Simulated scan of single mutants.
Amino acid sequence: MKNSASRKHGLSIGDISARTGLAPSAIRFYEEQGLVHPFRADSGQRRFDRADIRRLSFVMISQNLGFSIAEIRAALETLPQNRTPTKRDWERISARFRHHLDARIAQMTALRDKLDGCIGCGCLSLQNCKLYNPDDRARTRGTGPRYLMGDTPPPQTP
Rank of each mutant, 00 (worst) to 15 (best):
M1Q: 12
K2Q: 12
K2P: 02
N3D: 09
S4A: 14
S6T: 11
R7M: 10
H9S: 12
G10M: 04
S12Y: 04
I13L: 11
A18L: 11
S25P: 00
I27E: 11
I27M: 09
Q33F: 01
Q33Y: 01
G34N: 09
G34Q: 07
H37E: 10
F39E: 13
D42S: 11
D42N: 10
G44Q: 05
G44C: 06
R46K: 08
R46I: 04
R47Y: 02
R47K: 07
I53M: 08
R54Q: 08
R55Q: 01
V59D: 00
I61W: 04
S62T: 02
L65E: 06
F67N: 01
S68H: 02
A70P: 01
A74K: 07
T78S: 10
P80D: 09
P80R: 08
T84D: 13
R88G: 05
I93V: 03
I93L: 14
I93M: 08
F97D: 08
F97K: 14
R98Q: 09
A103G: 07
A103M: 13
A103P: 00
R104K: 15
T109C: 11
R112A: 15
G117N: 13
G117L: 11
G117Y: 12
I119Y: 03
G120P: 00
C121Q: 11
L124Q: 15
L126D: 13
Q127L: 11
C129S: 12
C129L: 11
Y132R: 08
N133Y: 06
R137Q: 10
A138L: 01
A138D: 03
R139Y: 06
R141Q: 13
G144F: 04
R146W: 03
Y147W: 12
L148P: 00
M149N: 10
T152L: 14
P153K: 13
P155R: 14
Q156Y: 02
T157K: 10
T157F: 04
P158S: 14
P158Y: 06
